[in-house]
Amino acid sequence: MVELEAVTRRYGKNTALDAVTVAFARGTFTAVMGPSGSGKSTLLQCAAGLDRPDAGRITVAGQDLTGLSERRLTLLRRERIGFVFQAFNLLPALTARQNVGLPMRLAGRRPDRATVDRALAAVGLADRAGHRPQQLSGGQQQRVAIARALVTRPAVLFADEPTGALDTNTGRDVLRLLRDLVDEHHQTIVMVTHDPAAAAYADRVLFLTDGRLSGSLSAPTASAVIEMMAAA
């Protein structure tokens, strides 16, 4: 679903990504880990078309991002890519239903209520559609953000520290939801996290060090992730 071939990204004299080659298969859940400054957020941003690499090739759902105009890149992100971040980024004046329908409005389309309600039902919030963010818990707000990311049926969902602002129990609920999206709906998810317990929900963990892939772990457990990080 997503392929990076020899992707390099520099910021001044700093090389954030150094000829990284990696692929993310359809219907899989991958966690990306590494110390601060290792390049994990840059990898996510380049793979999602939010940042352009200095060298290399990126393909999302069969579409080569190289050379795409800003307009075509924006359309691709809007239609084929979903984003979930640590900050929920919900508009406080809008209800959950209106927040979820926002990507359709930004695309110049009238939100289809049935589609929006299906997205809310998929994250367990069918009975909270008329609630505004301040009427929802942190975990519920993140679920609304996930529903908003899913409403366009993206080829891939990128999540950057999606449980970073949540307590342990609420974060676990959100991670179970992401796991269910992969298992039941074959959603492709790539998640940046610093938390070994969160990474254990993934099918695979990739480790970055100084902008390079330094290891991977399949069928991870939290203890195995901790051991891998300690050995790096």
Rank of each mutant, 00 (worst) to 15 (best):
L4P: 14
L4A: 13
L4G: 08
E5P: 00
A6K: 15
R10Q: 15
Y11E: 12
N14I: 13
N14Y: 11
N14K: 12
T15V: 15
T15R: 14
A16S: 14
A16E: 12
L17N: 10
D18R: 14
D18H: 12
A19T: 12
A19R: 15
V20T: 11
V20H: 04
T21N: 08
V22P: 08
V22E: 15
A23C: 11
A23M: 07
F24M: 09
R26G: 10
G27T: 10
G27F: 04
T28I: 03
F29W: 04
A31R: 07
M33G: 07
G34N: 14
S36L: 03
S36Q: 10
G37S: 11
G37K: 07
S38M: 07
S38F: 03
G39S: 09
G39C: 09
G39I: 02
G39P: 10
K40N: 12
S41T: 15
S41M: 04
S41D: 13
T42Y: 02
T42Q: 01
L44Q: 07
C46H: 01
A47S: 14
A47N: 05
A47F: 03
G49D: 13
G49T: 13
G49R: 09
L50D: 13
L50G: 08
D51L: 15
R52P: 05
P53S: 06
G56P: 09
G56Q: 10
R57H: 14
R57G: 06
R57W: 05
I58F: 06
I58D: 08
I58K: 07
I58H: 06
T59R: 15
T59P: 11
D64T: 13
D64Q: 07
D64E: 11
L65Y: 06
T66L: 03
L68F: 01
L68A: 06
E70C: 00
R72V: 03
L73N: 08
T74S: 13
T74K: 00
T74C: 07
R77H: 10
R78N: 13
E79S: 14
E79C: 04
R80C: 02
I81D: 10
I81T: 05
I81Q: 06
G82K: 02
G82H: 04
F85Q: 10
F88T: 12
N89T: 02
N89F: 08
L90C: 08
L90D: 09
L90P: 11
L91K: 01
P92M: 00
A93T: 15
T95E: 04
T95V: 05
A96T: 12
Q98E: 15
N99D: 13
N99V: 12
N99L: 08
V100F: 00
V100E: 02
V100P: 02
L102G: 10
P103C: 00
M104Y: 07
L106S: 06
L106E: 09
G108N: 11
G108A: 08
R109M: 08
P111Q: 02
P111M: 01
D112C: 03
R113K: 10
R113D: 14
A114M: 03
A114F: 01
D117F: 00
D117G: 00
R118G: 08
A119H: 06
A119E: 10
A119Q: 11
A119P: 13
L120S: 12
L120P: 14
A122W: 01
A122D: 13
A122H: 02
V123C: 05
V123H: 04
G124V: 05
G124Y: 03
A126W: 03
D127V: 02
R128K: 15
R128W: 03
R128M: 01
